[in-house]
């Protein structure tokens, strides 16, 4: 028998469970978090979600595309039913 130690950090016991994924976007509030690198793309995405799928979209802008959103912005986005974010600039 060999004994060794786990190299990973344990999952938080108090981690907030993810929200239930809605069946459709009809009437759903969406936080669309953007870094304004490509505003036409984000506007197009907003239009599609609003006109084709009936979502209620609110745009939030993070100050940098290469750093995490501030805590207040994350808390704001968490008020919505769904949040759309990007990673990996």
């Amino acid at each position: 028998m060999i004994e060794f130690l786990s190299p990973v950090w344990p999952d938080r016991a108090d981690a907030r469970p993810p929200k239930k994924r809605p069946a459709s976007l009809e009437g759903v509030s969406v936080a669309l978090v953007d870094d304004n690198l490509d505003i036409p793309f984000t506007t197009h995405l907003e239009t599609l979600m609003t006109t084709r799928y009936g979502a209620k979209v609110r745009r939030l802008v993070k100050p940098s595309g290469t750093a995490p959103s501030p805590a207040a912005l994350i808390a704001d986005a968490a008020e919505a039913d769904v949040a759309v974010v990007g990673i990996g600039l």
């Binding site: 028998m1 060999i2 004994e3 060794f4 130690l5 786990s6 190299p7 344990p10």
Partner: peptide, 8 residues
């Protein structure tokens, strides 16, 4: 840290 065991 969590202690993990294996047979070999």
């Amino acid at each position: 840290s969590e202690r993990v065991t294996a047979d070999d």
